[in-house]
Design a protein around this nucleic acid. Structure first.
Lengths: 109, 109
DNA sequence: TTTATCTATCGCAATATTACGATTAAATAA
DNA sequence: TTATTTAATCGTAATATTGCGATAGATAAA
């Protein structure tokens, strides 16, 4: 136990959950908002922006990288991170297909 | 440790993370998709739709209820669940302010 | 070369999540 | 009243997540 039973759900459901889960932490939201604000590669100074230790931030960056939301490139001694356009499009579509598929109807309880 | 340091982030960042986190499990995605497909109150038969035990599903419903995404009402011996229009609107706006705020630019790595 | 800088990873501890069976509680049906 | 049905909650076990300090590795600067 303690493990999500992914096998019992569709690939689409698992992918949605995976992406939303990656967004499900304030530090990762903060990282993404910072990258969006900069609107380009951000080299090095993410650690200065967050109230967490370097190792913890590195871990959060890794999680975002693993699901594809951001990508990183070595620039000399620094790492440059940015939003991955392709996955961001996937996220946008996924999100729209979920959110917009519900028509607000006021029919309920 | 093991606890998210919510105090160090803005209320908006924490709320976003909280909502995305609630969506970050395939069972909860499946529940929401089912409610949307029905497009009305769903009384009783959620347990038949998912490959998880009754108690586990009850827990997932509780989490969705806690962040406000769904609401439930007692109908006799059954529980009726549906999407909460108000929070769904909040979710929509939140997405706009995050997902749509990034203009794909191809400027990066 | 040596030193400084930056980031990933390791190891650990604390807490959270996932899942299930058993039980409880509440409403309906017999 | 006594079943029966339905869903929440309790207790427990296994695994995952969060966070940090310490360390390692790689590049640049002196």
């Amino acid at each position: 136990m303690g493990t999500t039973k992914s096998n019992n759900f569709t690939a689409a459901q698992n992918r949605k959950a995976e992406l939303y889960k990656a967004l499900g932490h304030p530090a990762r939201i903060a990282i993404i908002e910072f990258l969006i604000r900069k609107n380009s590669c951000v080299c090095g100074d993410i650690v200065d922006q967050l109230p967490l230790s370097q190792s913890t931030i590195s871990q959060h960056l890794k999680e975002l990288k693993q699901v594809g939301i951001i990508k990183g490139e070595i620039e000399g001694v620094k790492m440059c991170y940015c939003i991955d356009d392709k996955i961001w499009s996937e996220l946008k579509e996924m999100n729209n297909s979920l959110i917009d598929s519900y028509a607000i109807n006021d029919k309920c309880c």
